[in-house]
Amino acid sequence: MANAVTIQDINMAYETISHYVHTTPVFTNLTLDHLVGRKVFFKAENFQKTGSFKARGALNAVLALKSKNPYVKGVVTHSSGNHGEALAWASKIAQVECIVVVTKDTPKTKCQAIKGYGAELVFCQSPSDRKKTCDHISNEKNFPYVPTADHYDIIAGQGTIAVEFLKQVPELDAILVPVSGGGMASGIAIAAKAIKPNIKVFLIEPEGKMCELCLQTGTRLWSDPPKFLHTIADGLRLQPIGKLTWPIILDFVEKEVFSVTDEDIIKAMKFVFERLKLVIEPTSAIGVAAVMSERLAAMDTKMKNIGVILSGGNVDTDHLPWC
């Protein structure tokens, strides 16, 4: 994968990781279907290994790294939690060490899970400090850095979600995907468009990320250090889309973007808890919020079958966002 990711890369990733990851179920809800006037299919990656879709990309990346360099001793990353858990789990499978840099306000449940998979935790003050700390450890230990999204093997691994989803629900007209760095969004877009060229892939963002402006102008927003958003969706706080994921997203996803508020996320999260009886985290609820939005209601009524990624279920039950 020198310059891009193809459907062949994603299919290869699927073969590589399928013995270790779950084929996650798809759920529907008649109440929501009647409410939005369309059929909605929820791909429940909250049931994935480590509790989120991140397991797919992390495992593909670590196994690819181990294949290229059998003598690699360990890996390092920084994470809001889910990628850290996933990389710790993947590293255990690959039998390499793992160090994860997190901020001091990372949910306790995610920190405990990272340590539970055998990784070492390193704490820093703020999201903007994570990369600097990570780089220092990488140089000191000679451990490759495995980013949460901006990595071709990560993208290919996350693209396996679409391969699986379209086998389960081939009639999908659109897939709605949460976006932070863009690993899942770019991987799903590549796979979905290769399998079903007329399908639409939409981004969902927390308010303030400005993806729609970026897509319509063809300009990627960037700052150094990267800007982080104030949102309860802790997995989506990164402002810029990744350098590698951006051109893929620009080519393959729709220019209309669903932007949701914290209030929308809380409403959606409660709906899923109460009606679908599923545990999801705020980052995961963003897709449900998009489905329930006025923007979807105003879209083409021929778009009848909507796929939504429930990206993770690692919620901190001691700090629910409505308590």
Results as ranks from 00 to 15, higher is better:
Met1Gly: 14
Asn3Val: 04
Ile10Gln: 01
Asn11Met: 10
Tyr14Ala: 09
Glu15Gly: 06
Val21Leu: 12
Thr23Lys: 13
Val26Met: 04
Val36Thr: 03
Glu45Ile: 04
Gln48Ala: 13
Gln48Leu: 12
Gly51Leu: 07
Lys54Asn: 10
Lys54Asp: 06
Ala55Arg: 05
Leu59Glu: 02
Val62Ser: 09
Ala64Cys: 14
Ala90Met: 05
Thr103Val: 01
Gln112Gly: 08
Tyr117Pro: 06
Glu120Val: 11
Ser126Phe: 07
Pro127Lys: 04
Glu140Gly: 02
Glu140Ser: 11
Lys141Met: 12
Ile155His: 09
Glu164Cys: 09
Leu166Thr: 10
Leu166Val: 13
Lys167Leu: 00
Val169Pro: 03
Glu171Cys: 10
Leu172Met: 12
Ala194Glu: 14
Ile199Gly: 11
Leu203Arg: 03
Pro206Thr: 14
Lys209Met: 15
Lys209His: 06
Cys211Asp: 15
Leu213Asn: 11
Leu215Ile: 12
Gln216Cys: 08
Trp222Glu: 08
Leu229Met: 05
Leu238Thr: 14
Pro240Cys: 09
Ile241Ser: 15
Gly242Ala: 04
Gly242Thr: 08
Gly242Lys: 05
Lys243Phe: 12
Lys255His: 14
Val260Gln: 15
Asp262Lys: 13
Lys267Val: 06
Ala268Ile: 08
Val272Ala: 06
Glu274Gly: 09
Ile280Leu: 07
Glu281Gly: 10
Thr283Tyr: 02
Ile286Asp: 01
Val288Gly: 02
Met292Arg: 14
Met303Glu: 07
Val308Ala: 00
Leu310Ile: 14
Gly312Ala: 05
Leu320Phe: 10
